[in-house]
Amino acid sequence: MTMKTGITMAAEGEGYVAPGPASFDFSEVPLFELGGLAVTKPMVQLVLGAVIVFAFFYAAFRRASIVPGRLQFAGEAAYGMVRNSIGRDIIGSKDFAKFVPYLVALFFFLLINNAFASIPAIQFPTFSRASMAYALAGLSWVIYNGVGIHKHGLIGYLKLQSVPSGVSPVMYPLLVPLEFFSNILVRPATLALRLFANMFAGHLLLILFSTGGLFLIEYGGIGYVAGPLAWVLAIAISFLELLVQFLQAYVFTLLNAMYISGALADEH
């Protein structure tokens, strides 16, 4: 209903076309075709993001020395932040080391792809394509469950994740399904959707204020006041978005670390 009327109105050259889910659909405008497969802008961004992350770290650590250069120092600060404040503090110093590459790759992959929303000429958050977020959340689901099952065995792991400790067994019929639902099923879904929804909503808001401001100025009258105001707001929201982009990458990685740590816990 929404889009249909919007499109018709736009075709008639009157009224404002509000941005909607269609703004995130690139399937009609592929950049190029590769082996019969339409390659869209988000796909290119995804690969570009991975290349940038690896190039940065490779350049930083190519000639690693005890006394770091400027680039190496930046690389170490970035790597060390994820390694120490996410990996070591959450998972614990005993067995965090083998998860550090995963967490580092995850955090910076997310950060760059989120930051694409604010980088001029790209200006599209890759993970506002839900399927891409699903993939990362699915991977993290496989990893934390795999780690837990590897450590406790299937039965022990399910018991760990669904039977709460410190609760009388009378409550088990109520709590066990809830815990199982929450720990095994909801986690990956919220992980993916949180990332997707934040990126989606932020970008939508930016489109709304930018195109809306333009429309208002073209409309004239009160629009001459309201339009620039909308643009000022768009700028303010851009800065908020920068914060959100970082925060979402951080939270996604942090929750991954927490889920892994929870799966490794002896008893909780």
Binding site: S182, T190, L193, A197, V251, L254
Partner: peptide, 19 residues
């Protein structure tokens, strides 16, 4: 870490809503 975990759980409801 406790706050982030609680935040994640509470936000899960909002996320289920948007889905």
């Amino acid at each position: 870490s406790i706050a982030i975990l609680g935040f994640a759980l509470a936000e899960a409801l909002a996320i289920i809503g948007i889905a």
